Computed example of a mutant assay.
Amino acid sequence: MKVSAAGVSVSIDGTPILDGVTLTAAAGSVTGLIGPNGSGKSTLLRCLYRIIRPQQGAVLIGEHDVWQVPARRAGLLRAVVAQDQELDNDYTVRDIVAMGRIPHQRLLERESATDRAVVDEALARVGIEWAQTRRFATLSGGERQRVLLARALAQGAPVLLLDEPTNHLDIGAQLELLDLIRDLGLTTIAALHDLDHAIAYCDAVVLLQHGRVVAAGEPAAVLTPQHLADVFGVRAAVTTHPLTGRPHLVFAAAAAVLLAEEHAS
């Protein structure tokens, strides 16, 4: 299902955070939101999943304005894996994944056989079924992210929204999680800190700076040396990763490159 934002603007305590942001994420694609700290990535995601209401503009999933439909309906349209989610650490893994079924249940309705089957499938799909009776607090960071992703899958929504999904994970867990997300086939929008992940795993990226869209489109067309110099203040080159064959970014501080060029001359 397609996701679109049109002219989204947000100010918090009088400070503009987003200024007329427009984007489109094609059905089934993976779109990365990238930009420096404070560029508006997380705020834009929160507009998409109904935490921060835009002062201007609209956010659509399919033909549905997410701020005009009931909360339960919105829960059937998109699932969320947010940063630093606070959960009762006494919950078991299965308890947490089962929370994804809440939008499908009436008030005080008990878990059905269908709910249990969906939870089983979600646990298996992310490879965490072995831990379903474990307490959430006993898991590693990578395992916790898999549990939260399984909860999102159990929700059965066509759109997945992720805020820095690889934050605090070691490199192995990062790559495993990104491979898993890439293979889900859902319309996915993720705020990403690592630009190399964005160019390697995303179908499209949206580059933000000071709450505005600098560029949007295919990663290679957006993550150009000029854009990276203008927005991040670094020198960069796009190469091919020697192990995966995917596009790969190589960075250097602009000052270091200038010094090397002076020495070479």
Score class of each variant (00 low, 15 high):
25 A>C: 07
225 P>I: 06
224 T>F: 02
184 L>W: 06
88 D>Q: 09
6 A>W: 03
43 T>C: 07
166 T>L: 07
190 A>M: 09
140 S>Q: 14
161 L>Q: 02
109 E>A: 15
110 R>T: 15
102 I>W: 03
114 T>E: 15
104 H>W: 15
83 Q>A: 12
6 A>H: 15
86 E>G: 01
152 A>Y: 03
200 A>M: 10
42 S>F: 08
76 L>Y: 00
70 P>Q: 06
69 V>I: 15
91 Y>H: 09
145 Q>N: 11
138 T>F: 08
107 L>Y: 13
168 H>C: 05
79 A>L: 11
29 S>Q: 10
39 S>N: 08
88 D>L: 13
125 R>D: 10
211 G>W: 05
178 L>R: 05
184 L>C: 09
193 H>Y: 02
240 T>W: 06
103 P>D: 09
61 I>H: 00
84 D>H: 11
265 S>V: 12
174 Q>S: 11
111 E>C: 02
92 T>V: 03
161 L>F: 04
112 S>P: 10
189 I>T: 04
194 D>C: 00
152 A>V: 08
53 R>G: 10
155 Q>M: 01
209 Q>W: 05
97 V>N: 10
157 A>D: 11
78 R>T: 06
34 I>T: 12
233 G>N: 10
89 N>W: 06
99 M>I: 04
191 A>Y: 04
178 L>C: 05
159 V>S: 08
121 E>K: 11
168 H>P: 02
183 D>T: 05
37 N>E: 12
76 L>N: 12
87 L>Q: 02
223 L>Q: 07
119 V>H: 12
229 A>W: 01
40 G>M: 08
168 H>G: 02
106 R>K: 14
207 L>T: 05
44 L>P: 00
155 Q>R: 01
106 R>D: 07
100 G>C: 13
214 V>S: 04
89 N>L: 11
164 E>Y: 00
224 T>H: 00
177 L>W: 04
172 G>H: 15
248 H>E: 08
179 D>C: 06
118 V>T: 14
35 G>K: 01
177 L>V: 10
77 L>M: 11
44 L>I: 04
201 Y>S: 04
21 V>T: 01
124 A>Q: 14
35 G>M: 03
42 S>H: 09
2 K>H: 06
47 C>Y: 08
135 R>E: 14
21 V>P: 00
243 L>G: 10
259 L>S: 14
102 I>M: 10
230 D>A: 12
87 L>S: 04
233 G>I: 08
143 E>I: 08
141 G>N: 12
137 A>D: 15
44 L>W: 05
174 Q>V: 02
189 I>D: 00
97 V>Q: 10
78 R>M: 15
120 D>L: 01
235 R>W: 00
208 L>G: 07
155 Q>F: 11
75 G>R: 02
107 L>S: 10
100 G>A: 12
144 R>P: 07
7 G>S: 14
41 K>H: 00
157 A>F: 06
9 S>A: 13
88 D>A: 14
129 E>H: 14
173 A>R: 07
232 F>G: 03
80 V>K: 03
223 L>D: 06
52 I>V: 15
146 R>A: 01
252 A>G: 09
85 Q>D: 11
84 D>A: 13
89 N>S: 07
259 L>I: 01
74 A>W: 05
190 A>S: 12
30 V>I: 13
81 V>P: 05
21 V>I: 11
234 V>M: 08
6 A>K: 15
26 A>P: 02
27 A>Y: 03
204 A>P: 01
121 E>I: 04
205 V>H: 10
148 L>Y: 09
